[in-house]
Amino acid sequence: MNASQRVPWRTRKVAVAALALGLTAAATTYVMAQQDVSGTDSGNSTKFNVVGDGDLPTKKPKLGEDRAGLSAEETGYAIHVASTDSSVPSDATDVRGKDGPEFLYADLPDLSEGHTGRTAVVALYDYTHDVTYDQVVDLEAGKVIETKKSGTAQPPTSATEADLAMKLAIESDADLGFTTEFEENMGVPLIDPDQVDYVAGAWVFNKTTSKGQECGKDRCAQLMVSTASGVYLNTFDFVVNLSTQKIVRTQ
């Protein structure tokens, strides 16, 4: 691949499964979070769990041992605390332009960071300002105890970002070659993301491509797409700029 990838890649299947149940956007995030905590999933699982009524918990749940994997309830509570903290601007928006930052992942902090007690690190992305937030949440106290803000860090993509990247690529008028490849292989045009399997990874310009210099400051995603028969399509000549919602040619 021509630029630095930040793994794990995210599939769209968890988000689709959650949305099929009629859950809210917050609920979908909450459902997805269960797959991404504590290194329990690489981002390629299609399993999911529905928790409660779909709203993020605002009250402290029962807490596990300090280094035990985060429970669904703990994850949801951590997301709530991190995203509503005063360090996140009130006008923050997610990848679809809705109020509140995009939730990327939740996990236990690295041991090397020296945090004690029951804590979680939550990664968020604010599309209004193109800023990443790493929030360390003290679950016992119910507050953010450390914030790292970056205008260049590009954590792994969320499933919602992968969905939007795929949709933008299919609907683009940029005459992308992978759509032609799909039609040649399958005999029908590619008009809907459900026709393919795909994952997306954050993409950052590193001077090995002739274009895409904005990626790093802007939030960009590279897609890996395959047909139902397992044929991988060539998607390495472009990335999707999620900040501007436009296709960026890299070659």
Rank of each mutant, 00 (worst) to 15 (best):
A162G: 08
G22D: 06
G216K: 04
V188A: 14
L233K: 13
Y77T: 02
A17H: 04
P189N: 07
V95A: 06
L168M: 02
N44K: 09
L164H: 05
K211L: 01
T29G: 00
A123N: 07
G22N: 08
Q251T: 13
K207N: 09
A106T: 15
T46L: 01
E161I: 09
A27F: 02
L164K: 14
D66H: 04
D138W: 02
I145Q: 06
T119F: 00
A68G: 01
V122L: 09
Y133P: 07
D107M: 03
A72Q: 02
G177T: 15
A72L: 02
V122E: 08
V136C: 00
P109Q: 12
P61K: 07
T157I: 10
L111K: 13
D53K: 04
S71M: 02
M224W: 08
V131Y: 12
T46Y: 03
M186A: 09
D126W: 03
E113H: 10
S229G: 05
M224P: 00
T58Q: 13
T29V: 14
D237R: 12
M186Y: 12
A141G: 11
H80D: 05
S87N: 03
E181G: 04
T46D: 06
I79K: 04
K62Y: 01
Y105Q: 08
C220N: 07
V51W: 04
K217S: 06
A123I: 03
A20R: 11
R67C: 00
K59L: 02
D130F: 08
A153L: 12
E74D: 02
V88W: 11
V136E: 10
G69Y: 04
Y198T: 08
E214R: 05
N185V: 09
T160D: 10
A153D: 12
V122H: 07
G52M: 02
T40G: 09
A20N: 13
A174S: 15
F205S: 08
N241E: 10
V81T: 14
L168Q: 06
A25M: 10
D197R: 08
A17G: 15
L19W: 08
R6Q: 14
G114C: 06
D138R: 03
D163W: 01
E146Y: 00
D85N: 11
D107C: 01
P8L: 07
E161P: 10
G212W: 07
I247F: 06
A221F: 00
F236G: 13
L21V: 02
L168W: 09
A141D: 13
